[in-house]
Design a binder for these strands. Structure first.
Lengths: 332, 332
DNA sequence: TCGATTTAGTAAAACGGTTTAGTAAAAATA
DNA sequence: TATTTTTACTAAACCGTTTTACTAAATCGA
């Protein structure tokens, strides 16, 4: 039994497609369809459980009620949680989420971006790697509704929901310095991402403000494609260097490092302090102690959706930049 | 500047829509379009960066290349990880994922199911709560391509990718019994979900096989809407009951309970053993020790996608049931 | 009672592609 | 040279909606 279309309904009831469509869209009164007819159509529609084809609707209306959610990795708890919040907020407004993970590569990002646009998503929410601005500039010039979060690029003007990366990181690192840390290492994934670079800058500023010499060899980059092994190896290096604190630019590395510390460097676990960007519940009790910068994910989700809605409704171009205050959670 | 359509391209080049469409779909040779024309069209298309409207394509072809991914909560690491794996596998085949979180409620599930179907997804991957089979039965009778994972229902015949819930849980619980645990509590979210019930059954069987009296008051249900507080409260109860082991039916509760133990019951932490369904990295080092049943998520993702593809291609109805062996990770 | 208005609907175009069923001209064959 | 085949292309229908522009009949107002 094939799915019924408006045409079928109309034929079976002896009305025109137009009439049926009007009734289904609650325009019956406005369009002078008699009460009797309206009821007849609605009853029948209910009886046969007619379901409108959204694709056809989208084609005609030029609106899909779909939003693209493009992040480095949807299974990263940070992006997963924000994704979930956004999903719920958008669902209330009748939108749904189509997802894409970029693995921080421009290739995948461009591929997905193209895919989203071809699928006529009504808007995009992105944590872009900003490796190459080409595609994003094109979309901007077409006034494609986009809101960026978590990541930024100094040469790209768009709608941003961010936190004060540099300042927050600096603050956090200063705390462990105040506690006596002198030799402080840092682990980060690709520093080509500007927001991560800012976090590293925050670390640098904290050290130099306290007259601690910055040793570049203590700034280690882990391989994003092999996070577990690579974090283990780089942490090993820092442990051999006898650092008394390690700073991490995101929560995934921190979680991996906590794991590695507990498995391979148990003896040093009380003598090392961690500093993490992004919080995780487990930091509340895990060793080493982790001082973390907690991003306000509910607020991020709320603002992102709000601004996206604004952008989709406005005809003029707007570029808002909202910088939220992250919360410093000291565990010393 | 509005987006160009095939019609525009055709007009600007002096060909018909048909010709342009043939060339764009690599049917130029087959359809006897001259090399010269093909090159001209392709060059122009590249020049103006023409992007086909997938919605129009989908409408005509009756295929959207979109798969719905319906789970209790996309931000649950288990579903997020499997989602990511599935995303990648499907991307290779030209499909993309649209997501929905049900919060284990039938209302949301039905709403999302309807939404997915109206949006003409080509198939569905679901961890259903199976509270009510109505909608699922309807879809089955329409031969809508669906693959179920993680959750099952005894009265529903469909394609399943599962693990041996009862047996695996029984096994795991037996390990802690062998280690001397005598009073064993259990924490679960809604036991209306059959797969969770099976896990609880496994716990029951392990106890009765070892002649341990099953005390129903030691089986506590936590409120899914308030996981953190509820887990804390129920754990508190079990601690007051002086249990020497606690069994959890999924990883989210286990993680919350570890948190609560570390914050509120530190003194008992060495004297209690945990048993968790689903593994987490942090179980490798966290206290209390956690013996866990690790689901083979790569295999689950692979099979799910494989079977879904089969179902989408076959015309006859197939109902496969694949039961995978989970890995028991003993940490005693 | 006659023209104007309202009521209750409909036909057809449009959205942007794909596909079927063609056609006219050129080339090949007899 | 006449017929057939091949080449190169196109008109129009179609997918399932929405929407514009229309009409015929009924009702209203003076």
């Amino acid at each position: 039994m094939k799915k019924k279309s408006i045409k079928d309904i109309a034929q079976e009831l002896g009305y025109s497609k137009t009439t049926v469509s009007f009734v289904l869209n609650n325009k019956g009164d406005e369009k002078n369809i008699s009460k009797k007819t309206q009821e007849k159509i609605l009853a029948y529609v209910r009886e046969v459980n007619y379901q409108p084809n959204q694709i056809a609707k989208s084609l005609k209306k030029g609106k899909t009620n779909t939003i693209g959610y493009l992040v480095p990795d949807i299974s990263n708890p940070f992006y997963a949680k924000i994704g979930r919040l956004i999903e719920d907020l958008l669902a209330d407004k009748g939108y749904h989420l189509i997802i894409g993970s970029t693995d921080e590569t421009q290739e995948k990002e461009d591929l997905l971006l193209n895919m989203f646009v071809n699928r006529q998503v009504d808007g995009l929410i992105l944590a872009s790697s900003f490796e190459n601005l080409g595609m994003l500039n094109t979309l901007t010039s077409q006034r494609f509704p986009m809101v960026f979060f978590d990541r930024e690029h100094p040469d790209f003007l768009g709608n941003y929901i961010l936190v004060e990366n540099k300042k927050a990181m600096k603050n956090a690192v200063q705390k462990v310095i105040q506690q006596g840390a002198k030799k402080i290492g840092l682990l980060s994934i690709t520093p080509n991402v500007y927001s991560l670079k800012l976090r590293i800058d925050g670390y640098r500023e904290a050290l130099s403000d306290s007259n601690i010499h910055i040793e570049d060899r203590l700034i280690r980059i882990v391989d994003n494609n092999n996070l577990k092994e690579s974090t283990k190896a780089q942490l090993q290096y820092l442990m051999e260097e006898q650092v008394d604190a390690v700073v991490f630019t995101n929560n995934q590395i921190t979680a991996q490092a906590i794991w590695a510390m507990n498995i391979f460097h148990k003896e040093k676990i009380e003598n090392v302090k961690f500093v993490s960007f992004d919080n995780l519940d487990l930091f509340d009790y895990s060793k080493p102690k982790v001082t973390s910068v907690a991003q306000p994910i509910e607020k991020i989700a709320n603002y992102t959706v709000d601004i996206l809605e604004e952008v989709m409704n406005e005809k003029e171009r707007i570029s808002k930049r909202i910088v939220l205050e992250p919360k410093l959670i000291e565990r010393l």
